[in-house]
Computed example of a mutant assay.
Amino acid sequence: MGMLVLSENVCLDGGVQDPIGEDGSDRGGWFTQVTPEDYEAWAEVEYDEALGADALLLGRRTDHFFAGAGWNTRGGAWAERLREMPKYVISSTLDTPEWIGGTILRGEVAREVTRLKERYERDIVVYGSAQLTRTLIDHHLADQVRLTLHPYILGGGEHLLDGLAARASLRLVSTQPIGTNLVHLIYDIS
């Protein structure tokens, strides 16, 4: 059975609002402020994660983001790996996913994700998708959280774990510096 991994970029206060600044938020653009060295080190961690995964699970907005950010045609080993992976998009409004290789899942989230976990042997990675992340935690479907911690405090806006209905216990598996300013934390969810 596959392991469902929540792979997230977050600020020190848990903020996830408008990471690249495309939404016009006064709190946006924090992800684009990392140094080139930090970005390169982060991309290596993400590429390794993609090599260990069988599929991606996304919300509608994250599917739109990746397609709009050029991942359908972007070069490089990481982009090629993500393009070749099956992608599943949870949406009740989309007819067609925007990112190449996507499939829309319209049914009840818990049932659809359980089927995915039964279908795959390795990781099913969720990028971004804060609303979906909360749903997966609330339904006890997530097995692991991988956070890349960015050295910013947003002080408001959307936070990754806002509004969780369920309580979750986590166990720290590893910590890893990424570049000089980022930290990668991995927690198992019990």
Rank of each mutant, 00 (worst) to 15 (best):
S169A: 15
A168T: 04
S174F: 05
V173C: 12
F31S: 12
K117E: 05
T73W: 14
F65S: 12
E49N: 10
T114D: 14
E44G: 06
R122W: 06
F31K: 10
L185M: 11
L12Q: 05
L132T: 01
E40T: 07
G21F: 06
Y152D: 08
L147A: 05
Q131M: 11
V5I: 14
T103D: 13
L82V: 12
G24Q: 08
T135K: 09
R106H: 03
A165M: 11
T135L: 11
D23W: 15
K117H: 02
T114A: 15
F65I: 14
V45Y: 08
G155R: 08
V109W: 03
Q33R: 14
W78Y: 14
D188R: 03
A69H: 01
H184F: 07
E22H: 14
Y88H: 08
T73A: 15
H184I: 05
A53D: 00
G59Y: 00
L12R: 04
S7F: 06
H139C: 05
G101R: 09
E40R: 14
S7R: 01
H184C: 08
P36M: 13
W99S: 10
G101V: 06
A142C: 00
S174W: 02
E112K: 03
E80M: 12
A43F: 13
P36A: 12
L6Q: 03
L160F: 03
R171H: 13
L58K: 00
L147H: 00
G28M: 13
V109R: 00
R122A: 11
T103K: 15
R81V: 04
L132D: 02
V5Q: 04
L185P: 00
T133N: 07
P86L: 15
V34P: 00
I20E: 15
L172N: 07
G107E: 06
P19T: 07
D38E: 13
P151L: 14
D123E: 11
T114K: 14
C11L: 08
T175V: 11
Y120R: 10
R111I: 11
L149N: 06
W78E: 12
I90K: 03
V45T: 10
W42S: 11
E84P: 03
L12K: 03
D18R: 07
V125T: 05
E108N: 12
K87H: 07
L172D: 10
Y152F: 14
W78P: 04
G179M: 06
A110R: 08
R74S: 10
E98A: 14
G2L: 11
T93R: 08
T96Y: 08
G157N: 04
Y152Q: 10
F31A: 14
E8P: 06
R27G: 07
L154G: 11
L154E: 02
A130W: 00
D188S: 09
M1Y: 08
H64S: 13
T148V: 13
G107R: 04
L105E: 02
H184A: 12
L136G: 02
L132I: 03
V173K: 10
V16G: 05
Y88L: 07
T175I: 12
R27F: 12
G157E: 07
I186T: 15
